[in-house]
Design a protein around this nucleic acid. Structure first.
Length: 507
RNA sequence: GCUCCGUUCGUCUAACGGUUAGGACAUUAGGUUUUCAUCCUAAAAAUAGGAGUUCGAUUCUCCUACGGAGUACCA
């Protein structure tokens, strides 16, 4: 592409199931790159294999990207002038391109049946070839328009015999790709095979379709997973055969499983207990549910921030990046070459950082829906509770769970604290505390602390002896935030009442 | 097997020929806190191995080892 051309990138998933977090990262990098260069981010559905369609997968992809705030400029579900953006809807467009290749002599008809192909592979294996290929060495011995006479080919075509169209891979030619992330990659065509471009069902294969569509949709940069690197030379050759300008290529490193080696898979998530999908997915066949980051309580910002750092880094110490900051800082030059092992602990850390950066008001808003109608807590109170509790939470859910004490008096008391701290004289001490509180008019945290401490001082009671029982009586727990702040939020009457109840129950 | 890609602390990574090889997560130890969490401080922790090129290699080249991906009428 020339410098004047607009940056246009695409994310082209296949609707064969839910979008894996590796796929989301590919989409994210495409999106960041596009936005960084004021370009377009397109979504195209690669559904040329109709047998592998999974109901709901298409909608899942749309929803998941939307949750991640990876906004689509053009494509599936978002309009655009170069559609349709679903390859099955483009079916009639592909044949003409296969014909061009046929005419130019870069492709040929192949009539081999599945049995004949199997037979060939078996024959080659017996001859000591580990992974047999349909290439120039076997080409002549197969049923195709190169080995067969023109008459025979015409006859078969007229008869309506089933056929595919294969690329005629040139002999002994070096194909060079300048990958933006990896530099020059050179492959000799002798190692490539005569890939099927056009299937017998009238659909193109991925290889033909992605090249044709990328060209037609004016894609400037192809940013995709490393698993495509081996077939990139084939794609480059196709651009050449069509006489089309080749987009720039960038092959992203894989996301690896946290332990051991290999690509991160759904099984790893099940085994190690973390989601591998952005949002929850129910397998329509088995009804098996796979957990999602959204449902597990992650902020989409935390999820995408974490994902951005799996393979990319800004070169500075900053780790928390808003989407806008990611756009600003992103560059393919700073994407690593090696696969990155997924780190679930770090993922939680990211979420914690985002949680803590939110105000009490924002958190109250998020938590509000969880509160039973009967409680009807007012927003100001809730915001204060959130502000107090957020320091010890990773998820919004944590806040809610640890905040029960603000809405219900304890029904049970921490057994360990009771056993270790609740002494014979404890009820008397706590009675004194209630008397003290009862006479106070200023029940602010500061004042409660001041009065409480001076009471202890006067009587020479240790803080470590009284405070845990005070906490136990009011919250039923052995740990938590400052008791003085809790007292302020609960209010004098509630605190006194809870202490009195506890004295009765625990003595 | 073959082709391609890769290899810095346990993990994510920085250092694009010259640094005591830096940061973050996790870990450990202190400190703060009534407690838990937070927070602060500190510690431990890496250039896969071998040849070259160079005054000097984490960085460039080659070999080995290890790992990964690909090798379908799947994407």
């Amino acid at each position: 592409m020339t410098l004047m051309d607009k940056v246009r990138v695409r994310f082209a998933p296949s609707p064969t199931g839910p979008l894996h977090m590796g796929g989301v990262r590919t989409a994210l990098y495409n999106y960041l790159f596009a936005k960084k260069h004021n370009g377009d981010f397109l979504l195209r559905l690669e559904d040329t294999d109709q047998t592998r369609l999974v109901p709901g997968a298409e909608q899942y992809i749309l929803d998941a990207l939307s949750w991640c705030k990876i906004n689509i400029d053009e494509g599936l579900g978002h309009g655009g002038d170069l559609g349709p953006y679903k390859q099955s809807d483009r079916k009639p467009m592909y044949r003409q391109y296969a014909d061009i290749l046929l005419e130019k002599g870069h492709a040929y008809y192949a009539f081999d049946t599945a049995e004949e192909l199997d037979e060939m592979r078996q024959r080659m294996k017996n001859a000591g070839v580990p992974s047999p290929q349909y290439n120039s060495v076997v080409r002549d011995s197969m049923q195709n328009s190169i080995s067969l006479s023109a008459d025979e080919v015409k006859q078969r075509l007229d008869r309506g015999d089933s056929y595919v169209i294969r690329i005629k891979m040139p002999r002994n030619e070096e194909v060079k790709i300048n990958d933006t992330i990896r530099g020059w990659v050179v492959v000799n065509t002798n190692n490539l095979d005569d890939k099927v471009l056009f299937k017998s069902d009238g659909m193109p294969t991925y290889h033909l379709a992605n090249v044709v569509d990328d060209h037609l949709m004016k894609i400037s940069h192809v940013i995709r997973g490393e698993e495509w690197l081996p077939s990139a030379p084939l794609h480059v050759l196709l651009y050449r055969f069509f006489d089309w300008e080749c987009p720039a290529f960038a092959h992203l490193p894989l996301i690896l499983k946290p332990d051991g080696n290999g690509k991160l898979s759904k099984r790893d998530g099940d085994r190690l207990g973390f989601p591998v999908f952005p949002t929850e997915w129910t397998n329509p066949e088995t009804n098996e549910v796979s957990s999602g980051y959204r449902e597990e309580g992650y902020f989409p910002e935390a999820f995408t921030n974490m994902l951005a750092f799996l393979g990319w880094n800004p070169g500075t110490a900053q780790e928390i990046f808003s989407m806008d900051e990611l756009v600003e800082s992103f560059s393919l030059q700073r994407v690593g070459k090696a696969g990155a092992k997924f780190d679930f602990d770090k993922t939680k850390w990211f979420n914690q950082q985002y949680l803590r950066s939110k105000s009490g008001d924002e958190l109250a808003e998020l938590i509000h829906s969880k509160i039973p109608k009967s409680k009807d807590a007012d927003g100001v109170f809730l915001a204060k509770v959130c502000e107090l509790m957020k320091e010890r939470a990773t998820f919004v859910e944590d806040i809610w769970e640890s905040s029960q004490l603000f809405f219900d008096s304890p029904t049970e008391y921490d057994e360990k604290t009771h056993r270790k701290k609740w002494k014979e004289h404890t009820p008397d001490i706590l009675k004194k505390v209630t008397e003290l509180f009862g006479g106070m008019s200023d029940f602010s945290a500061e004042n409660v602390e001041k009065e409480f401490k001076s009471l202890l001082e006067e009587n020479e009671w240790g803080l470590g002896m009284v405070l845990p029982t005070f906490r136990l009586a009011v919250t039923g727990k052995g740990m938590g935030p400052s008791m003085f702040k809790i007292s302020e939020l609960l209010g004098k009457d509630e605190v006194v009442e809870r202490i009195e109840t506890a004295i009765q129950k625990l003595s």
